[in-house]
Design a protein around this nucleic acid. Sequence first.
DNA 1: CGGCTGCTTGATCGCTCTCAAATGGGGTGG
DNA 2: CCACCCCATTTGAGAGCGATCAAGCAGCCG
Lengths: 243, 243
Amino acid sequence: MSAGKFFITRPDYSSDDLAQYPFFRGVGERDIVEVADRARVVSHVRGEVFFNQGDAVAHQYMLLSGEVKIATISMEGEQTAMRYAGPGELFGGLLYEGLEEYPVSAVAAKNSRALRWNHSSIHKLLLAYPRLSINLISLLGREFTLIRNRFQELATERVEQRVARALSRLVDHAGKRVEKGVLIDFPVSRQDIAELTGTTLHTVSRILAKWEKMGILESGRERICICDPHGLVSLAEDLGHTG
Amino acid sequence: MSAGKFFITRPDYSSDDLAQYPFFRGVGERDIVEVADRARVVSHVRGEVFFNQGDAVAHQYMLLSGEVKIATISMEGEQTAMRYAGPGELFGGLLYEGLEEYPVSAVAAKNSRALRWNHSSIHKLLLAYPRLSINLISLLGREFTLIRNRFQELATERVEQRVARALSRLVDHAGKRVEKGVLIDFPVSRQDIAELTGTTLHTVSRILAKWEKMGILESGRERICICDPHGLVSLAEDLGHTG
DNA sequence: CGGCTGCTTGATCGCTCTCAAATGGGGTGG
DNA sequence: CCACCCCATTTGAGAGCGATCAAGCAGCCG
């Protein structure tokens, strides 16, 4: 990793690594270096926050390694998880005129490293490298599709179906092949699943217990391993027809 | 309207009208004309669709007048409303690589006119006028905040509270001052409110009947007029504390 | 080994969906 | 102008999903 083909700006990453991320798609190696040079690398261990909902918007982040939970907290104190961001994904205040506070919190779900641009830098960079803007729009489009789907599920589906879909997404997003099946490769509690699906940890616990009995998965303290991913998917689909 | 201060490209609109919309913020009059010239004006009467979920992505729209419902339909046939777009708002496939079908439908909630760019035109324009990209990102950011809030409400709040918020938003978005209070200025059925809030038209009907008795609003067939907007807002807040 | 934190499990309650049917407003065609 | 029909709306009764409350259990770290 220290033997990048191109100029390495910092010991933490090479331009090769960055070039593979969608934010830099179609951007020349030299330009990537220029853009990355305007960022700092920041690290947070599991549980630490990158920023809190309500903080003054200051930075835009791109995750290099780890996993970050993007969540909101309501006035009644209830948490809702918007998404989990993995390596290559952007998070932070989407700089639009009038936005002064982060509308969400970003907390490391495992030890994480990210590139951090400040607000004005990223603004200039987007103007200077239009391709970055296009890529950002593209990424936002995908994210939109995701939250739209989740919104629709929340509006029309039962809890069990939503949990099945949430687990499927986590597997796609951060699944690691292990002996028993596919492990979600960061600590996930029942409460986390509940915040993703708009239910309570109790209900999640009951559902997982049921599926464990059916042999679909295996789980423990903040650990979920899907033994039968296909079974999980067809469960998500079938629950619509029969229930 | 035909006496615009600047060059008028079509009888339908002047560059003045366009300059006030956020998509064109910071863009010169001449450039606005250039961009608008790449679009066609399309009209649809109430009930007609601009495009259907699943259609091949071909166009990006900016609404000039009217109101457009952006909604999805699930595999089980249930509709979910994502938002209502008013004049100046953009809708259509957010061009990202890999997107081939519209993920939502857009249907005129009243007679509507829109600018329509085709896919490749808008792509070129965004590259040629970086300020447009910035504005688009800005608009997406706002839209994101909106759907995030709605998602959180759906995940944590009761139906009554969600309906109160939905009505408040409709008032802000399309409220028209009338004698009795503020009228939502396009046809809105109980079913429409239900699709916005993830409930059924029956529940909406009961809630509106209750509020009508309380003197907060007045409603009829596809018509809702808020007599006491502030009461509605405090209802949305209070339902959290007491319920 | 002890305590903290996350997980399980039972019992109950009530919000909201579902099913069913009647009512009414408004536009259209005669 | 009137009658009719379509479709939105209202209203009732009942069932059930899932939240809530309440303990007890168990893994993991110090």
